[in-house]
Design a protein around this nucleic acid. Structure first.
Length: 307
DNA sequence: GAATAGGATTATG
DNA sequence: CATAATCCTATTC
């Protein structure tokens, strides 16, 4: 069925790539981005980003070619980017996957993970529901309780596992997209990285990419959206109500490549999820220092709590 | 009208 | 068996 070389985005022409295809067989694969010590401290993204006092401006700079209409075109570009991570200006995710990660993972992460059996190993954003009226307005929705989500303590570092059978979960796929400079600002982008809030700017394009990845040509946002909605109960995603196409990761990897948009503007538009709780998180300059960054693959066994 | 929520059913690994 | 894909109804933006 899926060929490693083509399983992702067939329209990516003849560049045989397989980065996205190169994930371990473990359910959850997180590409960790370990740039600098200070960035490591930044890892606690959920908590605070105090040091982000602007002395480091993000290098991830890409012209905000924000048209959004021509999806085909952009999809092609996106796919190309996803497939050809070897473009010099990009972070070449390819390296992530094949990096023999000498340094397996962040100790803090490891401990935190190992320690927490019942809860995610990642910083958790518990955004209180903005308003209960949102639920009430729905037609008698039953309260959803989240159970422990997939990723659990086990950290297995798969060094060179780019097997083809890779099937990223949707949430992983979205995270990957959010770390891809080509698609991130355009199709999908953070609207509030600290809270894990992102927006599917171009839902159709994202769905298309997802469909490509899953080899489901008929994928659309309806279907993908359903899958996203499954994440509500599982505590992986929240919906940022009031804003269309805006979702929120309840948990995030400690160090992601936060592409908050390239023109130096910290966050062009953080509609801080209108919950009013936020204290105005401001400078989140993504300090993704492209150079001397180390990419680490962390694989998390997703063993579900044996219910 | 697209987005959203979620039930039901089926598919797939 | 879990994760969706597909499909659907209903509601909201």
């Amino acid at each position: 069925m899926l060929q490693q070389s083509e399983l992702i985005f067939d329209f990516a022409s003849d560049h045989n790539m397989s980065q996205l295809g190169s994930y371990s067989e473990y359910p959850a694969v997180i590409v960790e981005h370990v740039p600098h010590p200070h960035l490591l401290s930044y890892a606690g993204l959920a908590c605070e980003q105090s040091h982000a006092d602007g002395d480091h401006q993000q290098l991830l700079k890409m012209e905000p070619c924000e048209s959004g209409e021509e999806e085909i075109m952009e999809t092609l570009v996106a796919a190309e980017s996803l497939l050809n991570m070897d473009c010099p200006d990009s972070l070449s995710l390819e390296q992530h996957y094949i990096t023999p990660l000498s340094q397996t993972f962040l100790p803090s992460l490891a401990e935190g993970v190992v320690g927490a059996v019942d809860q995610p190993q990642w910083p958790t954003f518990h955004t209180k529901k903005p308003a209960a009226q949102l639920q009430s307005k729905k037609r008698g929705r039953k309260p959803r309780h989240r159970r422990a989500e997939s990723p659990t303590p086990d950290i297995i570092v798969k060094k060179d596992k780019y097997n083809k059978g890779n099937t990223l979960y949707l949430w992983q796929f979205l995270m990957e997209l959010l770390q891809d400079r080509k698609v991130c600002p355009r199709y999908i982008k953070w609207t509030n990285p600290h809270k894990g809030i992102f927006k599917l700017v171009n839902s159709k394009a994202v769905a298309r990419l997802w469909g490509k990845h899953k080899n489901k040509p008929d994928m659309n946002y309806e279907t993908m959206g359903r899958a996203l909605r499954y994440y509500y109960q599982r505590g992986i995603l929240n919906k940022v109500e009031g804003q269309r196409l805006v979702y929120q990761f309840t948990t995030l990897p400690k160090d992601m490549i936060y592409i908050t948009d390239g023109d130096g503007t910290k966050e062009e538009e953080d509609y801080d999820d209108n919950s009013g709780n936020d204290e105005g998180v401001s400078d989140d300059s993504d300090d993704s220092t492209q150079k001397d960054v180390q990419y680490v693959i962390l694989t998390f066994r997703t063993e579900h709590q044996t219910k």
